[in-house]
Simulated scan of single mutants.
Amino acid sequence: MIGEIDDALKALVKASEGIAADIDIAFDAPTTEWAARRNAPTVDLFLYDIREDVRRREYGWSEQRDERGVVTARAPAPRYFKLSYLVTAWTQRPDDEHRLLDALLRCFLRYDAIPGTFVVEILAETGLPCSLTIAQPPPEDRAFADVWSSLGGELKPSLDVVITAPVSRDVTYAVGPPVTDGVAATFEDMGTGSADSRHRPAPRGR
């Protein structure tokens, strides 16, 4: 799942207007050592946090049907996971970095979810979209400055891109075939006597 999302984000950046086609795309932690080794304009998509979106957890079952609409199996509802990427631009000049960040912002603002053409393999198992948000306020238990301090690097402008992906739990329970025959009953079959006795009023008690 993570690899498919990495590939989708890389493809979106590569296809975006305002971003050179030959720009480097990296997924490295932007540490001081990494920055010192960089020698070409680079967009870094650093995956720094993975956590379940517990507010979207469901405990029901989803049904799998054949071409006739008959239920053939049931599976537990998927779990949703939020993947947070720290997106940074690296060039020789700050103003060039700002222009590149602007292009990246416009790139991701075009989408509310990963486009269907990039939803493949594991991402496609549930048939549900992978939502995309950008530059939202961080959770109360995490600040962007904390991310930079943990990396040992200097704070610099960045974009926070969060992908919320539904993940199948790889558990399926087969169901039995539908019932095609049985015993039918009519109202006439429910009586125990003749038609006259069924409609005769009951005697009153004394």
Rank of each mutant, 00 (worst) to 15 (best):
A113Q: 07
L86N: 02
V87P: 04
N39Y: 04
Q64Y: 05
R110E: 15
R57L: 04
A15K: 13
P41S: 13
P41D: 09
A20G: 14
V87M: 02
A103T: 05
C107S: 09
F27C: 12
A89F: 03
A20T: 03
T31P: 11
L45K: 11
P41H: 11
D49M: 02
L47Y: 12
L86Q: 01
L86G: 03
A113S: 12
Q92Y: 00
A73L: 01
E33G: 10
R57V: 11
Y80K: 11
D96M: 08
A75N: 06
A40P: 01
D112T: 09
Y48G: 08
K10C: 08
A21D: 13
V13D: 08
W61H: 03
D24L: 03
P78V: 05
R99M: 07
F81T: 12
R74M: 09
W90D: 03
L104H: 04
R37P: 00
I50M: 14
R106I: 06
V13A: 12
A20P: 00
R65F: 10
S16D: 08
A36D: 13
Y48E: 11
A73R: 11
R68I: 02
E63S: 12
W34V: 11
L47H: 05
A73I: 06
R68L: 08
A75D: 02
A75H: 00
R99Q: 12
Y48F: 15
I25S: 11
V70G: 13
P30V: 10
R74Q: 14
R93Q: 07
L104A: 13
A26I: 04
I19D: 03
G60C: 10
T72M: 14
Y59E: 13
K10Y: 13
Q92E: 10
R99W: 02
L86H: 05
A103P: 01
T42C: 05
N39L: 09
D44T: 01
R57Q: 08
L47A: 15
D53K: 01
A113C: 08
L104F: 02
C107Q: 03
R99E: 10
R110Y: 04
A21E: 10
A35H: 07
P94C: 01
F27W: 13
K82D: 04
E63F: 14
A11Y: 00
R57T: 06
L100V: 09
T42M: 07
E52T: 03
R57G: 00
A20I: 02
W90N: 00
F108D: 05
D96Y: 10
E52R: 04
N39K: 13
Y111T: 06
E97G: 13
E97P: 07
Q64H: 06
W90V: 11
A73Y: 14
V43R: 07
R57C: 02
D49P: 02
A11S: 07
T91L: 10
A36N: 10
P78E: 11
V70Y: 15
R51D: 09
R99V: 02
L100R: 01
Y48V: 09
L109E: 15
Q64M: 04
A21N: 02
L101R: 11
K82A: 09
R57H: 10
V13I: 15
